[in-house]
Design a binder for these strands. Structure first.
Lengths: 335, 335
DNA sequence: CCGGTTTCTGTAACCGGTTACATGAAAGGT
DNA sequence: ACCTTTCATGTAACCGGTTACAGAAACCGG
């Protein structure tokens, strides 16, 4: 059994209140007494129980973050950015991955009972649960998910970058563009798709735009799309993929089939993951770490300052043009 | 204020003991009473406080995992594998990244106070702290770090695969091999280096083997090594890098300089991250997720079964030959 | 040496649950 | 009708801390 505050108190010949005061470094303990307590504590290798402390203080000093998965670089980066700031703020970080979990909702609720606040990525949790948690007074921040009620949110800009991306492709002579991804799967994807449409609506005649729905956001799904297009002999001038993994899978399959990229077909992704650089993939860079870091700061405000008016942050993104969509740009990286 | 067990007891007209029994689903409560309690609980939207429960039960139902960083794919995958199993075992997961943190040791100790057990990756924490935690009775599992005392460990096979890798290079006609990485930075790297040496010692004369020490395991460090070698006009037949990121950075720099890979120089990495596939990088695949999953299972045994004899798991790795080290193999992936 | 402050320390209530044990009511046996 | 057993529920101690408040000790000036 680990020593408790009472053991230390007995050993030092003081009351538990005094021990508590010494351990918390609160003022008003005579030096001689402090020393006796510290000696006793060191003797017994005493560490205050976090549990007892948390119960008494009625706070957890911990926050949770809920994400679908950690396999792609995207979520890992967001979590990392979050963790870095949370640690700075001296908060522990609880993680919960909902991917392939049937009891996600209850797991999140249980997690809420262990934290002072929660960050929720994308649509990992139903709106109903989010609202219920908010109503119970749990501080919440949504990331990569549109605001619900008066819950804080942090998002990356999608629409404007999608417009730029599409305009870039148009300027490269693309006439038939095909968007790859399911807008229903995430609001981010929906916004990107909307941005592409906007650009095309302003592009005048002679352009066609279509969309192929794939639910996955992984390389296999991308490869499957390429496969189907090759089999049907129906290649557009450019594939605009909802994220980099899709694009990389698609790109790989096209190259295997000997298709000239960007000569015959152009391909773009979204996120700017590490592999995108090696594949020469045009993409849109998201500030993934910043998303997490910003969420951590907003959450802290909610908890500490008890801020009540909601805040919604929109972080900028950046178009990164590489060889997969450019006949003119050298494949070399600027940086 | 959230409702407590006493509020529910009052509302249902029973004692707190009965409420507790109902919430814990322990037997011996009459159906009529159970119903009254459940109704009251639903009315008040009561959820038992995790804190109170944990204190009374003297367990956290949470485990921690300590890792250096989450930026590369390696740690993210390990954490993910860990989280998946921990969730299955109904345990919350606390994470702690030590990278760039000066108070890592104390952060780990604080974390230990919030968990029933800890998984520690690599050398994120000093041996002294590990031993102290173990002595206090904290269940521990080390991952990618050699066993200390009688603490459990999970590692991936390094030496044999390094031998295979080096033999493959020798069979490709490599005579001068240069190992890139700092064996002191991680035991994994040290073992890989040792494996390469072993293979060369058995290779007969006419072969030279040297090593360039870089502390980083990132792309920039790899690029710097390439830069230096190019500047000195001193290229070996093959660079064997301690991990994929190093290799990718190095490879990219060589290709930028117009060096023929694998014609003039071969390059290999370690880990088989996603980008390695796109870069055609020969590497050794590690079962990253399995490392995490195995650690979670070992930890559970320690906590639940109170196992005392230590276990040490060694997971197999697999050589993946791609175009960066092979003049004969097609660059196409088998899978 | 005394009363009034000021400073330090102790007592006890509290945080929100769990659970051993006591109690009382209902059921069963003769 | 009475005694025993069984079952459901309540009482109260406990988990390990924090902290308001009270009381004791030290300090101060006259």
């Amino acid at each position: 059994m680990l020593p408790t505050i009472r053991d230390v108190a007995k050993q030092a010949g003081v009351s538990i209140a005094t021990v508590s005061r010494v351990m918390r470094e609160s003022a008003g303990v005579r030096d001689a007494t402090r020393l006796r307590v510290l000696t006793a504590a060191a003797d017994l290798e005493y560490t205050p129980s976090q549990l007892g402390r948390q119960l008494a203080e009625r706070r957890h000093a911990a926050n949770g973050i809920v994400f679908p998965d950690l396999s792609g670089p995207y979520y890992a980066e967001v979590v990392l950015g979050y963790e870095a700031v949370a640690a700075e703020l001296r908060r522990s970080v609880l993680i919960l991955s909902t991917h392939g979990r049937s009891d996600a909702e209850s797991a999140v609720r249980e997690m809420a009972g262990r934290c002072d606040g929660l960050v929720i990525l994308q649509h990992t949790v139903s709106d109903a649960t989010v609202l219920k948690l908010a109503a119970r007074g749990t501080p919440l921040v949504l990331v990569a998910r549109p605001p619900i009620g008066s819950v804080d949110s942090v998002n990356a800009e999608n629409h404007a970058s999608a417009v730029s991306l599409a305009e870039h492709l148009l300027s490269e002579g693309v006439r038939d563009l095909r968007f790859v991804g399911n807008p229903d799967v995430s609001p981010d994807v929906a916004e990107r798709w909307a941005g592409v449409r906007t650009a095309f609506e302003q592009s005048g005649d002679g352009h066609t735009l279509d969309q192929v729905t794939v639910d996955g956001l992984d390389e296999e799904s991308g490869a499957a799309v390429a496969e189907a297009a090759l089999a049907a002999g129906d290649l557009p001038d450019a594939f605009v993929c909802a994220n980099d993994e899709l694009a990389l899978g698609l790109l790989g399959r096209l190259k295997d089939a000997g298709v000239d990229v960007p000569g015959t077909v152009m391909v773009t992704g979204w996120d700017d993951v590490m592999a995108a650089r090696y594949a020469g993939l045009t993409t849109v860079r998201q500030p993934m770490r910043e998303l997490g870091a910003t969420a951590a700061r907003l959450l802290e405000e909610l908890i500490v300052d008890e801020r009540t008016e909601p805040r919604h942050e929109l972080l900028p993104t950046e178009l990164v043009i590489r060889s997969s969509s450019s006949r003119t740009t050298s494949p070399k990286e600027p940086k």
